[in-house]
Design a protein around this nucleic acid. Structure first.
Length: 290
DNA sequence: CGAATTTGACCCGCGC
DNA sequence: GCGCGGGTCAAATTCG
């Protein structure tokens, strides 16, 4: 035992042994660095792959969105043509017979009632839609075309506020509430009193755990973002760097939204399986059959 | 006890 | 003119 220690101490004191130890330490340090570099490279590779996947997903989403947009334009055009035919057939050619009747033709106007779709938990049977305003229920009816009751609300935040809303479950998907708004508020939302910076949309999502709330504003936001992305894809403009930054920020916020991820996954699954998507964005928006 | 909700009755426009 | 259906009213009921 004693001889072992004496031998070891001799070895440590030996200059050649010391250089070996230093070399070994340096080698260990290099190995650790290599491992770290490899780890970082792997991470970078993973990020690149993820980026490629996300680009693909975004491309698929954009393509489906364009299809849907075209389909909607076709429908709108067809209906507009039909209205022109109706007018020429009923109103203008026979004014005497129809003088007392009001033509029931709805032209798309700015005052068109806003429809908001809210996804709720499937087991939730209530007709409550949180939108930042305070509502007082004044009636409920079962309508002919939908087995679920329709609730009627008035805005109770201001006595003179003329806004009314109807809330009914979607016929095709019971987990979706359809809120139809009539009129314009003559005051701000409740959120403005509590949190001046918050928007109606944000509060709706924050207040209730499950709903996906999509209204015209959000649709417009998606429209702008996707069309912006499409523009950067097709031509490199002088503002491409700024556009890219904006898109990155927008995509980042979308990725953080679990509901968006689910919808995106559905879209990609449909794309991969090459089957027509029956439901778009969980809103029962039928895509054009290919 | 006051406010909010429920629910049956009523009103009104529209089609036949 | 009548019936149907959507929208509103208001008394009854419930809830905090």
């Amino acid at each position: 035992m004693l001889s072992y220690f004496s031998q070891s101490s001799k070895q440590i004191l030996n200059p050649s042994w010391a250089s070996v130890v230093i070399e070994a330490a340096a080698r260990t340090s290099t190995t650790k660095m290599d491992e770290k570099v490899k780890s970082l490279e792997a991470e970078l590779q993973h990020a690149k792959e993820e980026n490629t996947t996300l680009k693909l997903m975004l491309e698929v989403l954009s393509r489906n969105y364009k299809k849907l947009h075209l389909h909607l334009q076709e429908i709108t055009q067809t209906r507009a043509d039909q209205r022109v035919i109706d007018l020429s057939e009923s109103g203008l050619t026979n004014n005497h017979d129809h003088a007392n009747k009001r033509p029931r033709i709805e032209f798309p106007t700015a005052n068109k009632p806003l429809q908001v779709f809210v996804r709720t938990h499937p087991k939730d049977t209530s007709l409550i839609v949180k939108d930042g305003y305070s509502w007082r229920k004044y009636g409920q009816k079962v309508t002919k075309d939908n087995s679920s009751p329709r609730a009627y609300y008035r805005c109770s935040m201001a006595p003179s506020c003329p806004v009314k809303r109807k809330v009914q479950r979607c016929l095709r998907d019971n987990s979706i509430l359809v809120a139809t708004y009539d009129g314009e508020h003559n005051h701000g939302p409740l959120d403005d009193l509590l949190k001046p910076s918050s928007s109606v949309l944000k509060s709706s999502i924050a207040d209730s755990p499950s709903p996906i709330l999509i209204d015209d504003k959000e649709a417009t936001a998606i429209d702008v973002a996707l069309s912006g992305w499409s523009r950067t894809e097709t031509r490199q403009t002088e503002n491409s760097a700024q556009q890219h930054k904006n898109i990155e920020e927008y995509v980042g916020s979308l990725i953080k939204d679990p509901n968006f991820t689910v919808a995106l996954a559905e879209t990609v699954a449909c794309f991969i399986s090459n089957k027509p998507k029956k439901q778009a964005l969980n809103l029962n928006l039928s895509l054009p059959e290919e």
